[in-house]
Amino acid sequence: MTAALDKDLVGLAPLSAEQIRLILDTAEPFKEVSERPIKKVPALRGKTIVNLFFEASTRTRISFEFAEKRLSADTVNVAASGSAVQKGETLVDTARNLEAMRIDMVVIRHPSSGAAEFLGRRIRSNVVNAGDGKHEHPTQALLDLLTLRDKFGRIEGLKVCLVGDVLHSRVARSDIWGLLKLGAQVAVCGPRTLLPRRIEELGVTVFEHVADAIQWADALNVLRLQLERMEAGFIPSVREYYRVFGVTAERLEKAPRPLTIMHPGPMNRGVEIDSRVADGPHSVILDQVTNGVAVRMAVLYLLAGGKPELADAAKRGGGPGGPPD
């Protein structure tokens, strides 16, 4: 049981390679659940989960909600707008109040880095980080890893480049930890204004030019450029960004081999990515979304105490940790 998860999943930085592989392996049998006509297993029956979203999110929130419902958990969604949070309640008070209602798990999205860890230290319920500030978005990186493993059959030795706004990206940080721990080579490419200073010291290569990254990589993860970055002065214009750093079909034609294209969504077509690339034959962007539900099911199942070897059985009716019915 050395690979079992801790109480919370706040990021990939604290996880071992073995724990990451455990989640990916546990996700495999859950993929099939979503392909069934009746998409439900009783693994988390009777468990109460709160989805606590202090930031707007469509894809991640829905993906978590599907994962929870397909595991038969009872779920409540709390959005920051209209809740006590907007009335000035602090994060710690919100958490204590939820815990007082005897919930089992909290899935939290928060604009401040470290918010998930902060919450996890203060409540007994399991905490899953659904994105905290510019820190981590571990389930997104896990679905990226699962998608790469599906495509290449392995992570070790792969060359993966993150293109774009690494500075403000929690996806980038989680990807970097996950990929490095599983033995991939990682590079980043983007305007220097959008790369953290000294990022090389995390063990990644920096490319100044997208063309160079394309020559090197097996796969690109194209990060979303938030349009407010332009207003904040990090880049001169969206038009110039596309011309200098956009992942375009013309640039990809020069690749020595076809590159697998990922994007965490939502995409700005014609800003960081060319539509022909996003919709092209080597894009795995929708596979990422499908895998998102499976890895989130795996994470919730494992945190609830589910045994990995029972994931298959859980699909057929066993509760977490217990033998199959």
């Binding site: 880095s113 510019k134 940080r173 990022i199 010291e201």
Partner: peptide
Amino acid sequence: LVAARLGL
């Protein structure tokens, strides 16, 4: 480096 890692 610590700020880069913590996302602060």
